[in-house]
Structures are given as structure tokens and as C-alpha cells.
Design a binder for these strands. Structure first.
Lengths: 239, 239
DNA sequence: GCTTTCGAACATGTCAGATGTTCGTTATGG
DNA sequence: CCATAACGAACATCTGACATGTTCGAAAGC
């Protein structure tokens, strides 16, 4: 459906090998999530350009790349550090890796909070805030106030776009404010960004590239993008 | 084991009808939770007097009573109100009932946060803080600061002990501080307490009974206890 | 050294969730 | 207005995860 924009139930059943009833049931779930719209005989995508697909979909996508990035980030962090971990699916993988470490961690989404809630070695700090539906990213005055009250060794920040020219950008204005607060409260800032993010710019400006200390991306990143980042004084790691 | 303090594996197998292997496995889980200590041939309880059993056990106990109390509390709250809901198993049931309501809710434990995270009609406010292991009650400066920044219509407060003479008391000092902050931020305070709590006094003093507006308990509560509360000016409901 | 307990490994049972099938109902195009 | 295809409720079936039982070699305690 992502390729064609719309697709029929019978067609989907043929492609997947599942029965039409199962296709209908799955489409109903996705329609409830707001991903697509049903019409008689098929469904059409509701994802506009510039809009994020829902969390449940993004979480599965490129999981191996995210895990590699997360492992690299973990290697940049020393035992005993205090770390603030941003919202988003890549940062969720970072949180999952940090579960095994002896650290003080403040995650900025409830997904990551739950991932770390049982970790015996982690001192978990929960920020206040209003969780955005689906994403469960914590936002608002309570979140920025929680961040302003603390100082971290390292901030791990996700993004929707990252270029040398436009800096680090996000889709959501509230998220952007939280990211800024997290960056302001940390001595060192590590940005994580799958290769696709490096050629994009999203709506909300967060910070210029100069404020970042390191960027971890994957080996699919174009050299021209990473060279431009390096020229701005950022350490770039491709994994 | 609660009666005898210690018990043998063979004895437990005979009492329950389960195999010894199952008994061993279950005892291992409880030992990991810190409830008991294994020795060759049996196990002895590690629950000291005055100490709380772990969350997973308390959650199952008297579930029907807690649900009745929770339903009654929900009836005392009007649509559109802002409510702060305390930690603890009884308050978790309150949160589960409020999931269906149109309200602004700040839960004081991560269990309740998760219960409300998917509720479409609820405006969810997460307080900052450090979750206590198991309980996942949020505590500390961040929690009291989050509460101090807001004013609620109603606070639903749980307790470990509640008597007219000693007031509302809790086992944990940090919890007590959070409860006080919640009470200070609410116009109206509803205490929930299963009958057994009404004859008890725990370590940490929270507030005198006079600061409460209503107490919801169950029909197992002794009249002398509830009469004493009513004499202090509190509305008492037995369900 | 003997008996009892332990726990790893495998076999079995059980339950919830996903999937498939059937069939009466409903929407849409001609 | 009807014929046809799509729909979705109800039921049957499948499947995988988890709890339980069994066996047997190893370890602990007397």
C-alpha cells in the first residue's frame, strides 16, 4: 500500500497468502490506528508526506540497524554516568541496551521507562509530562521543568531530520522543546540518526549541528552528508 | 507458610496437590522476589512483622473488595475533574475504573500510568520521580515538585494504616512525603482503605484524619473504627 | 557411604490469541 | 430494483507460549 497508495483486499490476500477475512481484520486494526482508510473492497493509505507513520510500525522497521546504532552508543557511555535518553524508536533500542549497564538514566518516553523499570543496576529517573498518544513521548512544562532541575553527563537525542545546513529537526513542536531542554541539561550530546534521516529536514528546529558532540548513523549514510557534519566539528560514526 | 513461618517442600506438595518440582519452581520465584528464603527441604518466610508483602502478591489479594471500593470512588468523581491517584494496589484499581471516564488524571505509580496510557478520554499527566522497585511508586523531589506545580480537584489517597487517633500512615517515608504533597495540592481528599487497614498504624505519619473529606472502606470494617472517623468529621462509605 | 533433595532436560497439558470457514446481511453498480 | 461482490458475526481450528509433570544424574547432609 505504501507504494501504490491504495490496494484491494483480494489483492492483499493473494500477495500474503492469508485469507481475506484475516486481511479485513488486520486492515480494521490499522484503520483504528489511523494509518489507513477502508473503502469497500480495499483500503487507501492515510499517511501524508511529511507525516510520521505510527509508532508500532516504525518500531519494527530497520530494527537491526537501530540495534547496531544502540550498541555503538552504549560503547560511548561509561559506567556510572547519568544519561538522558530521548523518545523515538531508535532511542528505545538504546534504552534496551542500557538496561544491562550500571547507570543513572532518565528516559523521555514511557516506552523506554517501561523497558528500564525492571533493571536492577539502573537508577531510573522518570521525568514528568504529558505522554503523546502512541509515541508516549513525554512533553510539556513538567518535562522541561524536570530536565531543568538536573544536569546529565550525556544526552542521547533522536531526530526526524539532521543536516549540516538545517541542524537537528523534529516533526513535533513539543518534542523539539523537550529535546532542547535535554541538550541544555547535558555536558555531552550524542545524536542518533538512521541514514535516511541525514538527507531530511523536519518542521521543528531543535539545535544547530555545532551543539552536537557525536552523531551515530549507519553505513547507508552518504559520504557527502557525513563529511559535511564532520566539517562542522562533529564526530561521526557509521555502524 | 504465613501461619507457621516455615514449611517443607513435601508438605506443600501434599497440601496443594501439585508435584514437588512445581513447588520448588514456585518457591524459587518467591525467593527471587525476596519473599522467602529456601533451605534444603523447604523454605522460611522472610516477611518481618510491619513489612509489606511484595506488590505482585498484594495485587491479587481481596481484588473484589478493591474493585468495589474503586467503583464507589469513581461515583464520587464528576466528569471533567482533575484527579491525582496515589500508588498502591487499591488505587491501581481506582485508576483502572477511571480509564473509562473523561478526566484529567495524574497517577503516582507507573503501574497506574500504564493502565491509563491507552485511555482515549483521559488527559494523562505523568509526575516525575524515582520509581521504587516492584511497587513502581514515584517518589522524591521530582514527584513533590510536579505535584507542587499543579492544583487538583480531588486526591485519591491509599494508606497502610488509618485510625482516628493516629491519622493516615504509610510504611515508606518517601511515599508519605508524596502523599502529603498530593493532599496539599488537592481541594478534596478521598482516602481508600480496606477494612484491615482501619485498625492499623504504620511507621510514617502522613496527615491527621481531619484533613480527609471522605473515606471509602468495605463492609468488613468495625463500627467502632468507622464511628470514630465519622466523629472526626469524615464522610465514611462502606461498600 | 547412604539417603534425600535438587534441578536440568524433556514430555505433556492448557489456554489465549491468531487464523480460517461458513453463511446471512449489506452496499454498490448496472 | 436486482444481482453480485464484499462484509462481518459466529464458530471451528491452529499455534505458540507458559505452567506442570516426569525422569534421572548430581549434590548436599546425616
Amino acid at each position: 500500500m505504501r507504494e501504490a497508495g491504495r490496494i484491494g483486499v483480494t489483492e492483499l490476500a493473494g500477495l500474503t497468502g492469508a485469507s481475506e477475512m484475516t486481511i479485513r481484520r488486520d486492515l480494521e486494526v490499522l484503520a483504528d490506528q489511523g494509518v489507513l482508510e477502508r473503502y469497500r473492497g480495499g483500503a487507501r493509505s492515510l499517511l501524508l508526506r511529511g507525516e510520521e507513520p505510527p509508532f508500532a510500525l516504525r518500531e519494527q522497521e530497520g530494527l537491526d540497524v537501530k540495534r547496531r546504532i544502540a550498541a555503538e552508543v552504549s560503547g560511548l557511555i561509561a559506567d556510572g554516568e547519568s544519561v538522558v535518553v530521548d523518545s523515538g524508536t531508535t532511542c528505545l533500542e538504546v534504552a534496551r541496551v542500557l538496561e544491562q549497564r550500571r547507570l543513572t538514566v532518565m528516559p523521555l518516553s514511557l516506552h523506554a521507562v517501561n523497558a528500564l523499570a525492571g533493571a536492577p543496576q539502573v537508577t531510573l529517573l522518570v521525568p514528568g509530562g504529558q505522554p503523546r498518544p502512541g509515541e508516549l513521548a513525554l512533553t510539556g512544562q513538567l518535562t522541561t521543568a524536570s530536565l531543568a532541575a538536573l544536569r546529565f553527563d550525556t544526552a542521547v537525542i533522536g531526530c526526524c531530520g539532521l543536516t549540516a545546513a538545517d541542524g537537528l529537526t523534529a516533526y513535533d513542536l513539543d518534542d523539539a522543546a523537550v529535546k532542547r531542554a535535554a541538550i541544555a541539561s547535558a555536558r555531552r550530546v550524542i545524536a542518533v540518526a538512521a541514514a535516511a534521516k541525514l538527507s531530511r529536514t523536519a518542521l521543528a528546529f531543535v539545535t544547530p549541528v555545532a551543539a552536537l558532540h557525536a552523531v551515530v548513523t549507519d553505513d547507508g549514510a552518504a559520504d557527502e552528508e557525513t563529511d559535511a557534519l564532520a566539517a562542522a566539528g562533529v564526530t561521526v560514526r557509521k555502524v
